[in-house]
């Protein structure tokens, strides 16, 4: 069984310690350090292709770091302590770590072979060991929260992009994660569908103590919902500040030019 919302004693939820990630010769993360407190909503901004998504994928164990360590809730993510040494984690360890972490993807990644309800119940039943009835009740509540009670028997492919993404959010929440990773969740949506998804996310951020790490190009959303915004470029966090400060008085020149470019583009 999972331990929902079991907060670690430490006051750090996510800890990156000198994390290095390379793709071939291309260094994406250069000894990256940062941390996120429990319940915090942190947004990563920065140029496309700068490696923001890689940070989320490392946390979801979809990639492995070339060097350094990542801890979530005080436990190593892709390493295990064995005989006083850190060794690469095995599948079992990884699976236990993943239970505490949820992710919402840019392309939704719903399972087309399952109807909406089953998309949401599948993992709680298979990975957490919930009974089918429990999982269905949980799924129905979540689908109601994201405004899709009438779609539980639909095929994912019959839904609009915005509806699919709201199902994906419900699906991630059904695992009762401590950490929720949002990977450009509105980038694949038609403009008129973005607002609905963002409203759902704001509501979740307001009403739960889930820790959020979010990559987005929606600057207004980032400003409204974040506790902290990190400007990420060339493998490093170059500026880290509350949104009201970062968006109005960026300290760093690169932040300034980046914001200038994206906000110009948005107008």
């Amino acid at each position: 069984m999972s331990e929902p919302y079991s907060s670690p004693s430490s006051d750090v939820m996510i800890q990156f310690d000198r994390v290095v990630k390379k793709f071939g010769d291309h260094v994406v993360l250069r000894e990256l350090d940062f941390s996120v407190k429990p319940g915090e909503f942190v947004t990563l901004i920065g140029p496309s292709g700068s490696g923001k998504t890689t940070i989320l994928r490392l946390l979801m164990t979809l990639e492995t770091a070339d060097d350094g360590t990542i801890q979530v809730g005080g436990e190593y993510l892709s390493h295990m302590e064995r005989g006083g040494k850190l060794v690469p984690a095995d599948e079992r360890h990884l699976r236990n770590q993943r239970k505490r972490i949820g992710m919402v993807f840019q392309q939704f990644n719903l399972f087309p072979n399952m109807k909406v309800l089953q998309n949401v119940t599948e993992a709680p039943v298979r990975a957490l060991g919930l009974s089918k009835a429990e999982a269905e009740q949980r799924a129905r509540e979540l689908l109601e929260m994201v405004g899709l009670s009438d779609k539980i028997d639909a095929h994912p492919m019959q839904l609009s992009g915005g509806q699919q993404q709201r199902v994906a959010i419900a699906r991630a929440l059904a695992m009762r994660p401590q950490v929720l990773l949002l990977d450009e969740v509105t980038s694949a949506l038609d403009p008129e569908l973005v607002a609905g998804v963002l409203a759902v996310l704001k509501e979740i951020a307001r009403t739960t103590d889930i820790t959020f790490l979010c990559v987005t190009h929606e600057m207004q959303f980032a400003q409204d919902v974040s506790d902290r915004v990190m400007m990420f470029d060339q493998g490093q966090v170059i500026e880290d500040a509350p949104p009201e400060q970062l968006f109005t008085q960026p300290a760093h020149e690169r932040t300034r030019s980046f914001l200038h470019a994206v906000i110009d583009r948005a107008v």
Partner: peptide, 15 residues
Amino acid sequence: AQYEGAVALSLGPFD
């Protein structure tokens, strides 16, 4: 992406 979606939901290799 389907594989990654399943990993993100903690499903094991068999599932």
